[in-house]
Design a protein around this nucleic acid. Structure first.
Lengths: 214, 214
DNA sequence: AATGTTATTGAGCAGATGATCTTTAAAAGC
DNA sequence: GCTTTTAAAGATCATCTGCTCAATAACATT
């Protein structure tokens, strides 16, 4: 009768739900909930409240993480990891594809990854806290995405005034700001974010006289 | 000898510097330091640390503010107030001036007001905390600045596709992002922010085929 | 079914934290 | 110079918070 569906499943009640998970699984469960929790309330969220949400004692958390900082590092790692795919630099510089299409593809995929409440908020919290991972991420983004993007723009620009790194940051910032409005300020989500991204890209390309066929 | 320059001025030492200010003055001194303090460490900064920075006992703070939340409200008020001058809506819609000039004037003045570490960070902290003042500010900004800006753009746009509110937000976001990079992420300040703002505005106007004379 | 392993609990500690209240002393009035 | 007023300090409280550790009980092995 209860071969697979173990445990009385007495939900809502505390303490009775389930116990004794394999350590790796429990650890992951804690990190997953911590991501949600800290994203919501900030990195100063209390471990007791996190334990309550997990339906677990507070001391259990310290069985898996020596300190709260260590837990926060695990949260950072989980959230930051894989956010910048290593395939993009190459795809962004593939000149057999029109730049507009490359930009559309990149920001379509990238926005799907970052327009996510948990990422947006933890990124902002960690940025405000001056976390080194945050700085490294932005440096990496600049080096590996935006700088190549500048080079691609330069190669195609029809204007006498050359594109500058600030122009790329402006394009990037205008797009990221969509997510900031939605997840940090909790303003309503635009009806068609992809369309707004496309318009931002077209504004950028038009400014440098780059045709959509190039 | 010490007619005006009262007090031994034994600086650096604690407790001896000065005492018994007029209440209004002391209150303001506390709020001023609290703005700096909370902007730096976040709204969860401890009252004891704030008191230490003020060279004053912690209990004194509670002589002027019943609760910490009340102090934070005072900080919000001080920081949010006067950030959106009531003169702008009128100036932004003055069609005797070219739209480009109006935009340049607005964002020149506005950026001078908001590209300020204290404002930027407290705005972000309060936004993350879901403070109602933050939401109201953004609503107000939308109604009183961006919406009129949309109307002005519509009136001059030469394109068949009409300008959308999202375009104005994109312009705004791209500019604000300069300040976010600088003060939230602590990245280096652009060499000439005003120039970058001008370029952002020109990208915007060009996209709608609006000439700089109009 | 009995046993051993160890994930989880429960009780608790030391220091921090917002807030209170009594005491002290700086400045104003006389 | 003495008194009065009240800003500020000092001591302290109740609760919270990260963290520890010994006791318990869930699951695997036999």
């Amino acid at each position: 009768m209860d071969g697979q569906t173990e445990r009385p499943a007495r939900d809502g009640e505390d303490g009775a739900t389930r116990r004794r998970l394999p350590p790796a699984e429990r650890r992951q469960q804690i990190v997953d909930e911590a991501v949600r929790f800290f994203a919501e309330v900030g990195l100063e969220g209390k471990t007791r409240e996190l334990a309550r949400r997990l339906g677990v004692t507070q001391s259990l958390i310290f069985n898996y993480f020596a300190t709260k900082d260590e837990l926060i590092d695990a949260v950072y790692e989980k959230v930051y990891i894989g956010r910048l795919s290593p395939a993009w630099p190459e795809r962004l510089t593939d000149r057999s594809v029109p730049l507009r299409d490359r930009l559309l593809a990149f920001y379509s995929e990238y926005s799907a990854l970052i327009f996510e409440r948990e990422w947006m908020r933890i990124f902002m919290f960690s940025g405000l806290a001056g976390a080194s991972l945050n700085r490294r991420y932005l440096e990496h983004l600049g080096d590996v995405i935006l700088l190549p993007l500048l080079a691609e723009t330069e190669a195609l620009a029809q204007t006498d005034a050359p594109p500058k790194m600030e122009d790329v940051w402006n394009l990037h910032g205008g797009i990221v700001y969509i997510g900031i409005r939605q997840h940090i300020y909790r303003m309503p989500k635009p009806a068609k974010p992809q369309e707004e991204i496309a318009r931002a890209i077209d504004k950028y390309l038009l400014y440098f006289g780059i045709d959509s066929e190039n």
